[in-house]
Simulated assay, not measured.
Amino acid sequence: MSEIKDFIYLDTNKVSSLYSQISGGLVQSIESTQSNSEDSKNLRNYSFKVFKHEAGGTETESNQLKETRVSHHEVYNELETELFKHGYAAELGVDISKDEIESGEAINSFENVLCIKAEGHVVFEDYQRLTRIAANYEAITGFINKSITSNIKDTPEYIEIYNQLEESRLEIKAMKNGSQKTQKKKQLEIVESQLEELTTTRKVGAVEPWIIDGLKTWVNVFLPDIFNVRLYPFSDMDNFHIMSNVKREFFLEQDIESVHFLYGSVPTIKVSLLGVITAIPKKDSITFEPLKEFDTETIDEEGNEALSVENGFRGVFRGFDGLEAMVRTCRYPRIMVQPIAIYRSILPNPKFQRKA
């Protein structure tokens, strides 16, 4: 028996597009037809007063049961097989080694293949979820800290210090000697600070409002509805991973909060990812300069005002390239892909096979 794929994410549009190109057509569904023939007697009794006569005969009735089912998973399996069969895909650790990535030789392979497949640990980065948490951070931490304080007040350590404070306050109130009273107050302040330290050291730290507001603005401007998945194929190579931006509608579990709850932000299981390569950062700086056409003296000549305006507007976009590079965080030796599928592959385990 071949492996079973437990799909977490499947971009059916991309599967359809690639499969139709590589196979010359697309099977939208698979229809299974089951025929069942049954012989039955069709006998009718006629009375002609003199004698009875059985008229009729034997007929064969054929029933067909048609079952139509969506075949996205099966089409994907065929697509993955065909991509590797025809040389459109490469697998990290199989076709491309860690040594090739470390040396930089893998860039040539990345540039000459459509898809990359890898298995490893993943990290989910849902920026929509991040902004929701940030917007409610103060209320959440306030609730947590009140719960912590409430629990601390029931501990023997807290009760002991609190009782010492109460005794000291009563002693101070009864004192008449000014110098003794002052000395006792200093001792009281020390005990009070100990009590404050006992509660504050266990509380969740507060974040200044400007940080929360800035975070929400940054995400809303540069990362609206972005859901990143980062896959690390080599556990001992921290600087390399595959970056991807998934679309929420292609998660098989449509409730994204359920995905977070089931797998966590850093899932403990390894998964496989197949994606179309979209960005291959180089070790050296980018040599392509889209505004180089304006590096000419003729731009300032009379009658070329349109060139100046175009240069100005297009230069605005290039001015934000630095900010966008900070957001995308796709730098050498990482690569960016558009995910086709994310799944956990399971091979049959002879140890758990039941025998009849």
Score class of each variant (00 low, 15 high):
I190A: 10
D6H: 14
V327E: 03
K98Y: 08
P156H: 08
N220H: 08
Y19M: 06
H53N: 10
R248C: 11
P224Y: 04
M175A: 08
V259Q: 01
I335K: 02
L170G: 07
S272Y: 04
V229I: 14
I172H: 00
S62P: 09
N63V: 09
R132P: 04
Y46N: 09
S109R: 12
I152P: 00
R248T: 13
Y76D: 00
K216D: 09
I211F: 11
R69T: 05
L195P: 01
T182W: 05
L188M: 09
N13Q: 12
T60V: 13
I299E: 00
L291G: 04
K98A: 06
A306P: 06
Q183E: 13
I335G: 02
D236K: 01
T199C: 10
S147T: 05
L114M: 15
N304Y: 11
P281V: 04
M326C: 09
I140W: 05
E324Y: 14
G275T: 00
F143C: 02
E157F: 10
R202E: 15
S16I: 05
V122E: 04
S29D: 13
I242G: 00
E38G: 07
G322S: 07
L223C: 06
E54H: 08
M175H: 03
S97F: 12
G214V: 07
K173Q: 14
G178N: 14
S17Q: 12
G56W: 08
M175K: 01
G87V: 01
S62V: 15
I212L: 12
D238H: 13
S147G: 11
L130Q: 07
A89R: 00
G57L: 10
I107L: 08
L114A: 14
T131N: 04
